[in-house]
């Protein structure tokens, strides 16, 4: 079984927001609803400074905190490791929003369901690849099977020494080059 993950190379990301717009189109989101959030990070002291744009979305954590607290089992994980929301079970209690350390779960205004990135899950499989990956103008995103050592993503993680954003918080499946 595959275990899907994504790599985001912030050194290639130009912060154009194309991934977010593509995601909104693909997932039927309003312009003020988005699964991809952008963090701007500045580090260092002048003149040795470093600025980066970090696109953040659902990290599809192993033992996801949002899934653990979800009282209705609306949030669940597929066999392929994708964390999904069953919109017919969600009551909109927002416990998942509170529990998510990355703050990437959002309320859909029309339904009140608390949604998030689903790797463009179409009902039975992930997007191949998800729209944000397809759209990225600089090839900053790589998607694939983390368990397959020959997959593009596994090769890229090894080559760039990519890591999850905060391994002390959760065991995430989105890897970052920073």
């Amino acid at each position: 079984m595959a275990r899907y993950g994504m790599l985001i190379n912030t050194k290639k990301c130009v912060g154009c927001f194309a991934c977010r717009v593509a995601c909104q189109m693909a997932n039927g989101l309003q312009s003020d609803e988005s699964f991809i959030h952008f963090k701007e990070e500045e580090t260092g002291v002048y003149p040795n400074v470093h600025a980066e744009v970090v696109p953040v979305q659902c990290m599809h954590c192993e033992n996801a905190p949002c899934q653990q607290v979800c009282p209705t089992h609306a949030t669940y994980t597929t066999d392929s490791g994708v964390v999904l929301v069953d919109e017919n079970k969600c009551i909109g209690c927002k416990y998942c929003m509170a529990a998510c350390p990355y703050g990437v779960r959002i309320a859909i205004k029309e339904t009140g369901v608390i949604e998030k990135c689903r790797f463009c899950w179409d009902g039975s499989e992930v997007g191949n690849p998800p729209r944000c990956v397809n759209t990225c103008i600089s090839g900053a995103r790589v998607f694939g099977d983390l368990d397959d050592p020959n997959s593009d993503i596994s090769q890229e993680i090894a080559a760039t020494n990519a890591r999850p954003l905060a391994s002390h918080l959760t065991d995430a499946k989105i890897y970052y080059v920073r």
């Binding site: 009551i91 909109g92 009140g112």
Partner: peptide
């Protein structure tokens, strides 16, 4: 809990 409010059986 808005999603539940629209579908109370949930």
């Amino acid at each position: 809990a808005e999603a539940g409010l629209h579908n109370p059986l949930r």
